[in-house]
Design a protein around this nucleic acid. Structure first.
Length: 512
DNA sequence: TTCCGACAGTGGGGTCGCAAT
DNA sequence: ATTGCGACCCCACTATCGGAA
């Protein structure tokens, strides 16, 4: 298959708003795909590269290359070149990668260049990624979409399911079963604004502490232990103490779901930054493990001794978990019978926060384990802080925000009357707010370099955030975690904005 | 007819590790 | 040694489609 055909379909998909039409377009292409092209066509149309990391970013890709007049690239040819590209390493590799990219782009038409650029940078922007590709795949093969989704969850990848499905039809889906040693996509939580709201939605539920660490899926088969992240990367080699802990459990074959986190000498959780830095360390794991030891804390079990537990209600899975994993290695929890019983949940949240954790996850006791964002039987609740800050500048948006000022630079008042930048945010804005802030900030403009519009620090905005973290980037030595806009405060003058001093006082746990 | 679940888009900060300077 | 940059951790929120209620 020619790449130009994919570029064409991608353009058509991007041009239609209707999800049903997007699905139909993808299904049509999947039907005409040669089996040998499937391993490439499927991920490409889901907006992903089969190679994953390539070591090429915007710096290399932004160099303009004269496009070819006629399409000649084949899908498999491009894939082979990109595989080659990903294998380049050692001294001079950056230049070599740039050379290969230039060559590839030179052989591509303008249309193909756009498509390749989107693929490599991960910004396909066609309004259809994995989930819509799954629908298209189901439609192309006559398979049940739910069965395809489940197979993708079990395989941990769309690509392998697509290959099997397009080669052998819907019957191939039965081949995908939960297997110890092969990671499955993890179940994720949605957000609720209060435990009362969460309990109201879920009825009988467990309220569990939410630890601010790294999500892990731990597989053990006899002496073999494998540890996977949320995105199914294998990080076994970085976490020897988790491997040891898994080996000490009484079961012989199991899959556990949990969080890895570091505690200090008093049993208080260390900051996310410390835990994440430890888990990210690969070069001297022994040293990292001595300095920042981590502990696994489990909250679910997917398989035990050959029994697939995915479809059991959470209450039953937890009973198995409690049999397998001793209490200190499980998250703390409280049981709530229903909406009339929120006091216990509120108290548990308060106690969890007092122990230094970030919040709770409320989980329906009758829900099976299901991956992806589908379903809302897990609801996280975290406290939200707010501040009144001053807009110092704003950046021009991209994609659907092109032509609107989007990413705000936020400042708090400093002791000398100036404003110290604390971070940026693009979150929480409605289209109307984007429109309004673009006009308002243009009135306050001091300069515009085409990327950042600097403004007089006069506009006050209420910002919600999850907490403070240390920063080497910003002058106050701290930055906001997950900052988002709540509303503009035109009733407030910049002199009434919050100060760096009060912010730091509100978060004594953060040492600069 | 209205409501709501699911999805994609729009990016944020930090840390690590590799390659280049 | 330091700097640049890509990968991968954590993540919130809005707009929109389309099926459920």
């Amino acid at each position: 298959m020619l790449l130009t055909r994919l570029a064409e379909v991608s353009r058509e998909v991007a041009a239609t708003a209707a999800r049903s039409r997007k699905t139909a377009l993808l299904a049509e292409l999947f039907r005409e795909t040669d089996p040998d092209d499937v391993p490439v066509v499927i991920p490409y149309l889901a907006g992903r590269l089969p190679q994953g990391r390539l070591g090429v970013g915007w710096k290399v890709l932004s160099r303009p290359v004269t496009p070819a007049a006629e399409p000649s690239l084949t899908v498999r040819g491009v894939d082979a070149r990109l595989t080659e590209l990903g294998r380049v390493s050692g001294p001079g590799s950056q230049a070599e990668r740039a050379r290969i990219v230039g060559e590839l782009m030179g052989a591509a038409t303008a249309d193909e260049q756009r498509f390749l650029l989107g693929l490599i940078t991960g910004e396909v922007r066609q309004g259809a990624l994995d989930a819509v590709a799954v629908e298209g795949l189901a439609q192309a093969t006559g398979a049940d979409p739910a069965a395809v989704r489940r197979a993708v969850m079990l395989a941990g990848s769309l690509q392998t399911v697509a290959e099997a499905l397009l080669a052998d039809g819907p019957a191939a889906l039965d081949r995908f079963r939960l297997t110890v040693g092969r990671p499955v996509l993890p179940m994720l939580a949605h957000t609720a604004s209060s435990v009362a709201e969460a309990v109201q939605k879920l009825g009988g539920c467990a309220v569990e502490e939410k630890l601010d660490g790294i999500r892990v899926q731990v597989h053990r088969d006899g002496d073999t232990v494998r540890i996977f992240t949320r995105t199914l990367d294998d990080i076994t080699d970085r976490l020897p103490e988790v491997t040891s802990a898994a080996r000490e459990l009484r079961g012989d074959r199991f899959i556990l779901d949990g969080e890895v986190i570091s505690f200090d000498g008093d049993g208080r959780p260390r900051s996310f930054q410390e835990t994440a830095g430890r888990v990210g360390s690969r070069t001297d794991v022994a040293k990292a493990a001595r300095e920042v030891p981590v502990s696994p804390v489990f909250f679910d079990v997917l398989s035990v001794d050959g029994h697939d537990l995915l479809d059991l209600p959470f209450a039953d899975r937890h009973a198995e978990l409690a049999r397998l994993v001793p209490e200190p290695m499980r998250v703390r929890r409280a049981l709530v019978s229903g909406p009339d019983d929120t006091t216990a949940a509120e108290e548990f949240l308060a106690a969890t926060l007092a122990r230094g954790h970030e919040g709770v996850v409320v989980k329906a006791l009758d829900a099976p384990y299901s991956a992806g964002r589908r379903g809302a039987s897990w609801l996280k609740v975290k406290p939200v802080h707010t501040l009144d800050l001053v807009v110092l500048a704003a950046e021009w948006g991209h994609g659907r925000r092109t032509g609107r000022l989007s990413n705000l630079h936020l400042g708090a008042r400093d002791t000398d009357g100036t404003f110290a930048m604390l971070g940026k945010t693009f979150k929480g804005m409605t289209d109307a707010m984007l429109e309004w802030q673009t006009a308002r900030l243009k009135e306050l403009e001091v300069s515009d370099d085409g990327w950042v519009v600097t403004v007089r620090p006069e506009l006050v905005v209420e910002i919600a955030y999850d907490g403070l973290q240390r920063s080497t980037r910003y002058p106050a030595g701290v930055t906001l975690r997950f900052a988002r806009v709540v509303r503009y405060r035109e009733d407030k003058r910049p002199e009434e904005a919050d100060t760096v001093e009060t912010l730091l006082a509100a978060h004594p746990e953060v040492q600069r």
